[in-house]
Design a protein around this nucleic acid. Sequence first.
DNA 1: GTATATAGTTAGCTAGGCTAACTAATGTAA
DNA 2: TTACATTAGTTAGCCTAGCTAACTATATAC
Lengths: 139, 139
Amino acid sequence: MTIEQEFFNQYRLMYRPFINQLNVQLEPYQLYSSQWAVLRLLKDKGPHSFVDIANFMSIEKPSVTKLVHKLVELGYVETMAGKDKREKLVHLSTYGEELVQEIKAHLSPFFEEALAGVSKQDIEIATQVLARICMNINQ
Amino acid sequence: MTIEQEFFNQYRLMYRPFINQLNVQLEPYQLYSSQWAVLRLLKDKGPHSFVDIANFMSIEKPSVTKLVHKLVELGYVETMAGKDKREKLVHLSTYGEELVQEIKAHLSPFFEEALAGVSKQDIEIATQVLARICMNINQ
DNA sequence: GTATATAGTTAGCTAGGCTAACTAATGTAA
DNA sequence: TTACATTAGTTAGCCTAGCTAACTATATAC
C-alpha cells in the first residue's frame, strides 16, 4: 500500500469515531456537528448569506436552508436583509454568541485529549496537509 | 482559535469534497466509498466476520449487513462458514480480488493529485497524527 | 423589455449510518 | 442437565446529513 493510500485510509477510519464523540459533546446544547460547523463559521468569520455558507461548507443550498432553519428555531442565529432583496444574511443572536463561546470552552479539553501525545509542530503540519488537500481537490 | 480547534476544523472541512470526489472515482465500479472501505479491508487483512468488520470500521452490525449484502449482490465478495455455526466470514471473490487490484490502480493518481505538493515526510506525519487520534478517541 | 442569472425554498430522494427487538447457536453455572 | 446469559447475524424502522429537480422572487445584461 502506498503512503498516499495509507493516509486516506487513516483519514476515513478516524471520521466516524470522531464525529460520534463530537456529537456526544454537543448533545447538551441540542446540536449536531453539522449545525455546530455553521455556528463556528459565523463566529469566526461573521455573518454569511446562505450561498456563502453552502460554498464554504461544500454543500448545496437546500442543505443550508435546513441547517439554518434549525438554528433559528433554537434561537442561536437570526437572519437579516442582505445586499439586495433576494439575499438573506445569517448572524449569531446575542444568545448564540454566548453559547458558541461556552461550547468552544466545553470542547477544548475533548480536542486536547484527542490530540494527546502529538507535538504542536506535528499538529500544524497535519493541519497544513489537510488544507493543501482541500485546495488541490477543489482545483 | 487554538491549533487543536484549527486542526479539527480543517479535518471536517476536507471530508465532503474528498468523499464526493472519491465517489466519482468509484462510480464506474458501482461502488460508494463505504463499500470500497470494506473491500479494501478484506484485501489488506483477509477474510473477516461481520462483527470484525463492524469493529474495524466503528459501525454497528446492521450497517455491516447492508454493506456486505450489497457487495455479495455485485459479486465482489462471498460468505463462508466461520469458526462455529453462528459466525460467517466475508472474503473477496476471485472477481472481487481482480477488481480491487484494478480500483487501487485507478485511484492512485487521484490520491497523488490530492496530495500534490506535500512531502512524503509530511504525509507520514499527518498519517501518524490521524492514527494517534483514533487511538486516543477509542480509549 | 425580454432573456438570463442569482438567492432562497420546497418536495422528495439517497447514503450511511443508528436502535430495538428478534432468531439461532454457544457458554456458563446450579 | 437444565436454565440463563452471551454472541453472531438479521429485520424493521428510524435519523443525520446530505442530494437533485423544480419552483418563486429579484436582479442583471443585451
